[in-house]
Amino acid sequence: MSKEHGRAFRSQTLSEWLWGWFLIAPTIVGLIVLNIVPIGQTAYLSLFKSGDFGKGNVYVGFDNYRKMAHDPQVWHALGNTLLYALLVVPLSIAFAMLVAVLLNGKTRGKSLYRTVYFIPMVAAPAAVTMVWKWLYNEHFGLLNYGLSRLGMSAVDWTTDPNVAMFSIAVIGIWSVVGYNMVLLLAGLQEIPRDFYEASDIDGAGKLQRFFVITLPLVSPTLFFVVVTSMIQAMQVFDVIYMMIEVTNPAYDHTVSLVYLFYNNAFKYFNKGYGSAIVMLLLVLILIVTAIQMKVQKKWVQYL
């Protein structure tokens, strides 16, 4: 009897194992071929110099990394990437939070606003950047026309090295506000009503209520949005690529690490140097994410 039982149990367990392996097989094989092995390949490639015609790859050890340390463009790109992330992430989340809080109640037109704010998310960045570039046009753009009507002088939104990064950040913020708002609004709606009712009895003001109740209770969602937005922002490419050509005087002040990676790997065909740049990006993202994981204990409150 117990022997029978044992055999039945074993065949059942075995079938579960087999099903498990069968079901994960395509994904795991795919991940290994498409992602895991390529990480090693990129790391390996970063030890080579490539590009010179007919010469193929030449092993150079850590020369690419040494070269990066002395390459002003890499330092520019590192600074620009961080500046972009530090502009876009806090501001887009602040705006998204403002809109989410305003919509989280019996606000008229709630679902219409939600729909409208989300629109930039469904448009291709290539198309969106083209129209922003046109809005920013020095001579014929809507923005400078508006400034001239107000009696102000024109701004070189996309070519002035001191301005261009801010113009790009505006597009970045505009593109993700709606997405972040939808996520935050979903988080806000999970806060039980009782918390607010209790604070009404205490006679807390609206602002106080936001900082004492809403913010701590929505902090897990907020943390998720901050971490993912940060990772996204540090990979910025499309907007800058579409807006700033290599010949643009603001190029050095706007080129991001991924843009620099693209140029080196696919424009100048130095895949070794491109790989080294993307390894730098990996390290940067891991450091920034690790810091956030560490700091979260100080401000994220899980119920």
């Binding site: 579960e16 194992w17 498990g20 991940l31 390529p38 990979q235 390894m279 990006l281 993202i285 891991l286």
Partner: peptide
């Protein structure tokens, strides 16, 4: 389902999500 290697393989899934996608691009192109 429970099967040997589950957490190891799921670790691979999590690991892929933490890595910036640009790191895959050159090998995928090749």
């Amino acid at each position: 389902l429970k099967f040997p290697g589950r957490s190891l393989f799921f670790g691979l899934v999590l690991f892929q999500m933490m890595v910036p996608t640009q790191i895959f691009i050159i090998p995928q192109y090749l």
